[in-house]
Design a protein around this nucleic acid. Structure first.
Lengths: 153, 153
DNA sequence: TTATACTCGACTATGTCAATTGAGATTGAT
DNA sequence: ATCAATCTCAATTGACATAGTCGAGTATAA
């Protein structure tokens, strides 16, 4: 029931690119430092996001990456599906990555029906949350002092 | 975002044991055939469920397995947590399997806050669904003709 | 006492994850 | 034209997980 590091890094990189949307292109180096992600690994991930049409790049000395679409148009579901595959916990309840399972009768499988609920819940959240939402949340979280630390004048 | 086959097999085995609750003990052989699970692999899984206090066994010629508690007391969350670990998509939002992540500031991480929503949704569903619910659903699904096939007299 | 279960540990083949490495192609500035 | 910074692309690696398999052993009812 887990997201790989690869997928998590992709989201973190998109958070940075979302925050810089409309401005210049952002270098891998810069994302790598801000988000604490191994540079050569991030390279691979951004390339993959590019192949998926989620980001675009410019090469050469003033090169870098930017979002290929508006942040409001990029859902977490789309990103995770592209990087990881199915959102569903078992592929017999996945819409786009469906695979038949080994159970005796899929259409009457009780486990399947519960997993469908889980899938729907996950899809609902990740489909309605966009990179723009992520950026907005980030701004709010950073406008306020760190939650767990009290402070006095 | 996926359940392993191991975890799925565990749930399917528990569905069988739940349906036979109160009756005699059930042999691995029988579960293996009903649910189409490799016998020697299932052996391992049932042993693991036993170590987790979820099932109990009797050895010898009329041996087999049964649930260690009432079906209403065994939640899917407990089973999955025992077999697979965290329900959360990233371990920095897991209650019982928490691990620090590499992002610059966990307390202000926007991704974390979305992943917390996902976690809560998954936990809510798996925590309220028990083996007894699974069995009840199964009875309903099997009392009715297969959903996708029309039939005539 | 014996056949039929469960028990336990080791073993294996395959695949995935998380990188690392190296060579190449573009681009802007000088 | 040259150079340096940047993206691009393919291959490789080591560690670990997954999905089994195998064999010898132990308990128990008939």
């Amino acid at each position: 029931m887990k997201l790989s590091l690869r997928g998590e890094y992709a989201l973190r990189a998109l958070l940075v690119l979302g925050a810089c949307y409309g401005q210049e292109v952002v270098r891998i180096q810069s994302i790598s430092q801000q988000q604490n992600i191994p540079k050569r690994f991030l390279e691979q991930i951004l390339n993959d996001l590019k192949a998926g049409g989620i980001v675009e790049s410019r090469r050469g000395i003033s090169g870098g990456y930017r979002l290929a679409r508006r942040p409001e148009e990029i859902t977490l579901a789309a990103v995770i599906r592209h990087m990881e595959g199915a959102l569903a916990p078992v592929s017999c309840v996945s819409d786009r990555f469906y695979e038949k399972c080994s159970c005796p009768d899929e259409s009457r499988c009780a486990i399947r029906s519960v997993m469908k609920e889980v899938r729907d819940a996950v899809v609902a959240i990740t489909e309605r949350t966009t990179v723009a939402d992520l950026c907005a949340r980030s701004r709010i979280l950073n406008a306020v002092p760190a939650p767990s630390l009290d402070y006095m004048i």
